[in-house]
Amino acid sequence: MAESGDSRLTDASHNACSAALRALPECTPDRDLWPDLSRALQSRRRSHRLHVLVPLALAAGLAAFMLWPRQTLQLSLPTASKPTASNPAMGSTELADLQQRSQSMERWISALSHNAAQDSRDLMAAVEVEDLIGLIDIQLGAARDANDALPLWRKRVRLLEDLATIRASGASIAAGHFALTSADNTNQRIN
């Protein structure tokens, strides 16, 4: 009885807290953020245009990546060479490999079409994975030595693979849509 009285009290307190927080006014930034945003957008567009001029070899690499099963990618990860205190050279080799792989994955991902449609779940998942990569980068910034950094670089590469898979699925959808549209157009011309 007393317990149900307590829970009613808690519920009432919860509701009162909710109501009080919801009653707070909306806020507006004290200066207009649009001019900065607009400038940043335009400068990113300029740099994106440069990326579009990247050689066709990259596109070929991208196509190969999309056709490659995910398992193959995972197999190619250098997971076997974990660093040990007795073999620090092996650790530094793995670190260099991971950093190189990380760079090439980033190039692949940035070369994927920014206009490829993705469903909302994929978009949210991509944002989530990018956040996690950002978090890893913060941790890497605080890493004291290679032993600290190595597991973080492994995580980073795995996350980049996840991101590439998510983004590539959108690109595949876009490619499929393009193929269908082309086929439709061809059929219309034939008919």
Partner: peptide, 15 residues
């Protein structure tokens, strides 16, 4: 906002 604008072309409108 910047992130949103960079991705908005991919938004399919299913949510």
């Amino acid at each position: 906002m910047l992130r949103l604008f960079e991705r908005v072309a991919q938004f399919r409108g299913d949510a």
